[in-house]
């Protein structure tokens, strides 16, 4: 197996939201990946300066193509480039997909609880997609999947249409929590995710779900604490922190 840096070609770009873009990459020789993995992307300036950042894979298909969805941090070094500059036909240096821990395994029959803050939905979307297309004979194909997705506003939701379609499956449940702006007529006013709302819209500890939490570090930190307080076993909770102080769903002003 060859590892290290490889050259991927950008074969498609889709504006996901006003501040996020999905890049479709072709990585010659790639034969699928595990749902939840990430790649490292390396940018090089003409003077030799390089910057490396990690991005989760959003897609879950077998071939040599991958989707990444990148949220722009306005003062960021790499994300604005990926969101605004990169064009179809460009080449990017990529390492991976890597990571064998924060992955969903179709052989695991456990119910799955996914909890996303903002762009943290990306690897969880890969898990939902892998679940939807899993071999019906694999134990995980029949597992119930729930996604709790905390997001700023309706306009900031990634993969909107596909999430709606996935949620039509009796096995899949999608709950959106709007933190700053809720859609008109929604029952819950916008506001941070709190521990009671988290408990009310996630699988219970008694159901012993495999839990995946992903988002900015502060979000993951808070949610993981709440889950443990609610009785989930720490060994059932897998986390992927994206860094940054971001906005914590609770406690912090």
């Amino acid at each position: 197996m060859r590892t290290g840096w490889n050259v991927a070609e950008v074969i498609g770009v889709t504006q996901e939201t006003p501040t996020a873009r999905t890049l479709r990459l072709r990585l010659p020789g790639l034969a699928g990946h595990r749902a939840g993995q990430h790649v490292d992307v390396r940018l090089s300036a003409p003077d030799g300066y390089t910057a490396v950042r990690s991005y989760s894979v959003a897609s879950a298909w077998p071939g040599d193509e991958l989707d990444l969805t990148v949220e722009e941090l306005s003062d960021g070094e790499v994300s604005p480039y990926l969101v605004h500059q990169v064009a179809v036909g460009d080449r990017l240096e990529v390492r991976g997909p890597v990571g064998g821990w924060f992955v969903w395994d179709p052989a695991d029959p456990s119910p799955v609880q996914l909890i996303a803050g903002g762009s943290g939905v990306v690897p969880l979307m890969a898990m939902l997609r892998a679940h939807a297309t899993a071999d019906p004979r694999s134990p995980g194909a029949a597992a119930p999947f729930r996604l709790l997705y905390s997001v700023r506003s309706p306009a900031a939701v990634y993969y909107r249409a596909e999430l709606d379609a996935l949620a039509r499956s009796p096995l899949v449940d999608v709950t959106l929590v709007y933190t700053r702006e809720a859609p008109p007529g929604s029952r819950r006013p916008p506001g941070r995710l709190e521990a009671p709302a988290l408990a009310a819209s996630t699988l219970t500890p008694a159901e012993n779900p495999a839990v995946f939490v992903c988002g900015a570090t502060a979000f993951v930190e808070t949610v993981a604490d709440w889950l443990i307080e609610a009785g989930h076993s720490a060994s059932r909770i897998k986390t992927e922190r994206y860094g940054g102080t971001g906005t914590s769903p609770g406690t912090r002003p």
Partner: peptide, 25 residues
């Protein structure tokens, strides 16, 4: 190895004689 990313300059600059080799401001 090392393809240049067109239009990427990074946040750091190399335009000063006070910079040792391989350093960025």
């Amino acid at each position: 190895m090392g393809i240049v990313s067109p239009g990427f300059f990074g946040r750091r600059r190399r335009d000063d004689p006070a910079l040792p080799p391989g350093q960025y401001l």
